[in-house]
Design a protein around this nucleic acid. Structure first.
Ligand SMILES: [Zn+2]
Ligand SMILES: [Zn+2]
Ligand SMILES: [Zn+2]
Ligand SMILES: [Zn+2]
Lengths: 390, 390
DNA sequence: CCGAGTTCACACTGTTCA
DNA sequence: TGAACAGTGTGAACTCGG
């Protein structure tokens, strides 16, 4: 196993000097043993032989060494050719394009496979616990529902053109209006997602509008979390610019708490659905002494419990035991409270920013900062597109 | 003088993060504070927006950070535009050309100024000797003539577009035809230069044509020397490819001998003029037993001696004594003989390369390899433009 | 692993403008 | 005159297909 230093595979193996400049070579480049620099030099310059002038300001016999090679690229290029570097080994424009296309194609394939493996893993993990005593396997029906939720959401947001990156430029100049306006598209897609939840879509149109209005804060918050926007540096910038240092911190902590759930491709989506069915809680109690009134409160309750139960079963199937599931629910409730508090802070902040609120696009304005009576108004309800679904 | 780190002018001053990727910025680029990489990226890619496809393989909202910016060109470019980078700040092809021209022009001006300073120095030094016993000062008239010669030549070759460097790409594939065809433009400018010499221009048109034909070899040779092409490595390549190893060597030695005179901005030009007035010597004696016949041989002689005498006075003014001038003339004559020998070799070579000669552009073909009787033909005489001058 | 390619930090040139 | 900002060239470090 004695290693010959000349043929050894050690990293520092010496190949001999560059045929052009004598520096340490890295291998055969364009037909000749050369260093990195001469390789790059030849690729860049051999192709422009006819187009650019190469002039030696000496006598055309300049030395080409490691230290002098930069002095005269005419003589350097001449030497490259002299030692036999092959211009034909340089990929032509079309060859380069072909290679680029190939790389692109391969990358696409790889990513597709990765996504496949990923979703496959999720599907398997849903069943993985079935044989153990702890977790309870999901029924095929539940599995189907969950898979549907996942697919509906992913499809909505991955449809090309739906989300052409309207992110982040706001940066330091962000105010609440630019901050929210930037999100309009994402919000619309989120509403589209809800419309595809049968229980939600069956509700009276005004109830649907009121629900998303009432719960907009947490829904928006969770959705940004799912879309992984919350970790975006510029998002945080915008946050600070729009809500101030303290406000932004509070919002960020909420995001941090949500991140606990982000490892799971379904959990947050499911929680969003449940939240969407929750009645007003204590929002807008500042000057409305009664809670928001719904047309079909019972249907909302029923729907909510359908999904709460589904969540419960899902957690049971994912966690080792009921005990774990209870623990999970405990911390979940804590986070819910945190999030609610945050959203209330934001609401209060918005009230103080009346001037900027006027610049928010109508749809969002009516959702985020409704005048108390507009909670019952029909304006922009149709703009939410809840009217014409399925 | 306490330096505020924020307003300090120190090199390492921090400007804040790149608006695109958050890395360290280097300044305002294309309208926005960015890093070097994003600057280069934007310059490279913004211009090919219409030509190349930019596709995001995610959802079009890829993060653009220092580490991730390479992942998705589409989103990176989108972000560049989003943060306000101005495509209009990128110089267009024509703007770049305009700038290049400007740079070129400035460089030429600078060089001219430098040359002027140089010749001024020479002129001053010419007069500096006047008080010494050795060199004889030039008369104001001689000085004017010499200055004129210098200016006429420099102006002819520095006029924009006259010499767009059609040199050197020939390289290994050079044959005599490509070798000479490459020089057509320079030769035409040389003829223009001669036309501005009054004594030459007053000669009968056919005499003018015959003179430049007869003396083409040495004239061409010296002119390439003045233009400093002879030291160009690619020129030497071409030389070897066109005339073979031995032939090229001989030509190169002639160039080497001429280089002795190249330190002087006037000498070679003056010598060219004198040579231009010299009668046939022994060219084309191979099958014409009489010398070339001129219409006004006397005028040619007279002109030649005007410039020979000027050269003599010039040398007297430059060299410490008459003795030195004589020595100079001796070595000059030797070099003349060398050059003549070289040109004869080239002529012989051209005769053997009939096949390639056919590919030489007509003007040069008729000059370089005239059929014996074509020496008296009028064809291409007008092409030399000797007809319509002044 | 090899040898194509690309990216980009860095160094530099040159123009413009205050 | 020097800072700012266009440009270009170099070469180390990297990716990727075979
Ligand atoms: Zn090298
Ligand atoms: Zn050189
Ligand atoms: Zn950047
Ligand atoms: Zn992307």
């Amino acid at each position: 196993m004695a290693e010959n230093p000349c043929t050894g595979t050690s990293k520092s193996r010496q190949l001999g000097p560059c045929s052009v400049c004598g520096a340490n070579s890295i291998g055969i480049n364009f037909g000749v043993l050369t260093c990195m620099a001469c390789k790059a030099f030849f690729r860049r310059n051999a192709v422009k032989l006819g187009k650019t002038e190469f002039i030696c300001y000496q006598n055309g016999d300049c030395l080409v060494t490691h230290d002098l090679r930069r002095m005269c690229n005419c003589c350097r290029l001449a030497k490259c050719f002299r030692v036999g570097m092959q211009k034909s080994s340089i990929l032509s424009e079309s060859e380069k394009q072909a290679r680029k296309d190939l790389v692109d194609q391969n990358r696409r394939k790889r990513e597709e496979r990765k996504l496949m493996r990923h979703t496959e893993k999720i599907r398997l993990s849903l069943n993985a616990y079935s044989s153990e005593k702890g977790p309870k396997a999901l029924s095929p029906f539940d599995q189907m529902i969950l898979t549907n939720i996942f697919n509906i959401y992913e499809r909505a947001y991955s449809q090309k053109g739906v989300e052409p990156f309207t992110n982040a430029p706001v940066l330091k100049h962000a105010t609440v209006d630019t901050f929210f306006n930037d999100s309009e598209r994402r919000v619309r897609v989120l509403f589209d997602f809800f419309k595809l939840i049968p229980e939600f879509n069956k509700l009276p149109i005004m109830d649907r509008a009121r629900l998303v209005r009432t719960n907009f804060g947490p829904l928006f918050h969770m959705n940004e979390s799912i879309l992984n926007r919350s970790s975006h540096e510029n998002f945080i910038f915008s946050l600070q610019a729009a809500f101030g240092e303290i406000g932004a911190l509070e919002v960020r902590i909420s995001f941090e708490r949500e991140r606990e759930y982000s490892y799971d491709p379904i959990l947050l989506k499911l929680i969003m659905i449940i939240w969407c069915f929750s009645l007003g809680m204590n929002k807008y109690t500042y000057n409305i002494d009664t809670s928001v009134i719904y047309e079909d409160t019972l249907a909302i309750f029923a729907s909510e419990s359908v999904y709460v139960e589904l969540l419960w079963r899902y957690l049971l199937s994912r966690l080792p035991s009921t005990e774990y599931t209870v623990k999970f629910f405990n911390s979940f409730v804590l986070n819910v409270l945190w999030l609610q508090r945050t959203c209330l802070s934001v609401d209060r902040f918005m009230l103080k920013s009346e001037r900027n609120v006027k610049n928010i696009v109508p749809l969002l304005q009516c959702i985020i900062c409704p005048s108390p009576d507009s909670l019952y108004a029909t304006e922009h309800t149709s703009d939410m597109n809840f009217g014409n679904v399925q």
